[in-house]
Design a protein around this nucleic acid. Structure first.
Length: 481
RNA sequence: CGGGGAGUAGUUCAGAUGGCUAGAACGCUGCGUUUGGGACGCAGAGGUCGCAGGUUCAAGUCCUGUCUCCCCGACCA
């Protein structure tokens, strides 16, 4: 290494010394994205996009099982639509991109690049729904949205991001709330089973509620630096939007009623979460279920003359494995060490090494990304071993993340203990009866926010550690992204 | 908007008190030797030093202005 070279491109900043830098390093070495020319935008590279595709595919399957269908609505929304719901426009106007010129002229009516699609979808719904027989409307769209955030961060808060947004309309308030909660439970299951990411779920406080919603339900994940990341949300919108978009139906008795609605979304932020929950100082670590490549086959050619023999063996293995796994053979001319590091940094769960020695002995070497453990496996039980290994890695990642989340969640009774716990980068559970003003004050004092009132502690109540009020509900606090 | 930092090769950077043809490492191209955990040799390509003015015999270096980017906070999926 040159003496002038302070930054070794191959190395990764250790998590403990600088978590943000580590996060950016992982993204860089795994080759997921880079910055776009407009501030806060991302160029998602093939490997990064492949992760998103897997998320899409699996989540899409799961929501369709609940009767949801996909559709697509325009990117451009009349500004006037946004303005109809007062708190909605107040919430979003600071961050919308407004188009005032197009086709070489100034427009008579400006439009916005969608920051979310409630308005344009419900305008359509109002034409589609006339009878109770048209309900419920259960529609999802996979799309990009634009929010001109003050401080963008790769994946976590990009100016433009990809997501799914589900929008439903129902005949009753009860049905809408059930749907909102159902979707939240689907997010939770999806995150835990597919992304190996444990979550807290609960209700947001008034101040953290979605602009225009009656109730916002949320899922919160713990990153390895102890900060919280809002993973996905589900909103019970009540009938607010229905009233301003004139979304009405005639019920069984011939009475005209407004619909009750929900909306729910999950974005490319989930990839940021994935990185910050599982990855380590060697690079990305991906749970097998999301990994674009589950098994990478690395041939070893100690001498040129072995190349053909090994490669034909690799081909056999590929044919055998590609039926059941996402598998890739790295036949590039890079030297072996370089390949091993490369795929490690990309987070491939299982690596398969095969060289002349292994061929002679009828076996291969498998190495797992999460623990680094290497095992030698006979060729005839290869498939079974890989299958088990992938399952084990998936479980192990979840177990570790869950353990970390549980061990780093503390219950407190007093504000002093609260501050101590927050400074120790914990998630904190404590009784809370504060106002929105109190939340603000708490944040300036401790940098922590109320993440949610967790469902699992819904029935508990006690004395608020901040205001001293009785009958306070148990809330989850953390510093957050 | 506040607080830091940075603009020089594809990337990460070095270029005190102005001075010869602007450097290194990695990466890239070609040839050869190599290949069981980040190889090595030789040859090569690659830069109007963020931009605009100014001072000077001479500016990457000094002065003035300006723009941009990154990181940390307020906002959020």
């Amino acid at each position: 290494m040159g003496e002038n070279n302070k930054h070794d491109e191959k190395k990764i900043t250790p998590r403990k010394s600088d978590f943000s830098q580590w996060y950016l390093d992982v993204i860089r070495v795994a080759d997921l994205v880079e910055h776009g020319p407009v501030k806060g935008t991302m160029i998602i590279k093939p490997y990064g996009y492949a992760i998103w595709e897997n998320i899409q595919k699996e989540f899409d399957k799961r929501i369709k099982e609940t009767g949801v269908e996909n559709a697509y609505f325009p990117l451009f929304i009349p500004y006037e639509f946004l303005q109809r719901e007062k708190s909605h426009v107040e919430g979003f106007s600071p961050e919308v991109a407004v188009v005032t010129h197009a086709g070489g002229e100034e427009l008579t009516e400006p439009f916005v690049v969608r920051p979310t699609s409630e308005t344009i979808m419900y305008d359509a719904y109002s034409r589609w729904v006339t009878s109770y027989k048209d309900l419920p409307v259960l529609i999802n769209q996979w799309a990009n949205v634009v929010r001109w955030e003050v401080r963008p961060r790769l994946f976590l808060r990009s100016t433009e991001f990809l997501w799914q947004e589900g929008h439903t309309a129902h005949a009753t308030a009860k049905e809408a709330d059930e749907r909102a909660q159902l979707m939240l439970s689907i997010y939770k299951k999806f995150a835990e089973e597919f992304l190996a990411m444990p979550l807290y779920t609960g209700k947001k406080t008034d101040s953290e509620r979605f602009a225009g919603a009656d109730i916002t339900y949320t899922t919160e994940a713990m990153m390895q630096d102890g900060k919280a990341l809002q993973f996905a949300t589900s909103h019970n919108l009540g009938d607010k939007f229905a009233k301003v978009f004139n979304l009405k139906f005639t019920d069984e008795n011939g009475d005209t009623k407004y619909c009750y609605q929900t909306s729910w979304g999950m974005s490319t932020r989930s990839i940021g979460g994935l990185i910050m929950v599982h990855s380590d100082d060697r690079g990305l670590v991906l749970p097998p279920k999301v990994a674009p490549v589950q098994v990478v086959v690395v041939p070893v050619w100690p001498k040129e003359e072995f190349k053909n023999e090994v490669n034909s063996e690799v081909e056999k293995i590929m044919n055998e494995l590609k039926v059941d796994f996402r598998v890739k053979a790295d036949l590039s001319d890079e030297r072996v060490g370089e390949k091993l590091y490369k795929w490690e940094k990309k987070g491939v769960p299982v690596r398969l090494e095969i060289g002349p020695r292994d061929i002679k002995e009828g076996c291969v070497v498998l190495s797992r990304r999460d623990t680094g453990e290497k095992i030698t496996v006979k060729r005839d039980e290869l498939k079974k071993k890989i299958f088990n290994l992938l399952e084990e890695i998936q479980e192990n990642l979840y177990r570790n993340a869950l353990k970390r989340m549980e061990e780093n969640t503390e219950r407190v009774e007093t504000y002093d203990d609260f501050k101590k716990a927050i400074d120790n980068k914990k998630f904190v559970l404590g009784y809370w009866a504060g106002s929105s003003e109190d939340e603000k004050q708490l944040k300036t004092e401790t940098m922590a926010t109320v993440r949610c009132f967790p469902f699992e502690h819904e029935d508990e109540s006690g004395k608020c550690f901040y205001t001293g009020k009785d009958g306070a509900k148990l809330a989850l606090f953390a510093r957050s992204y």
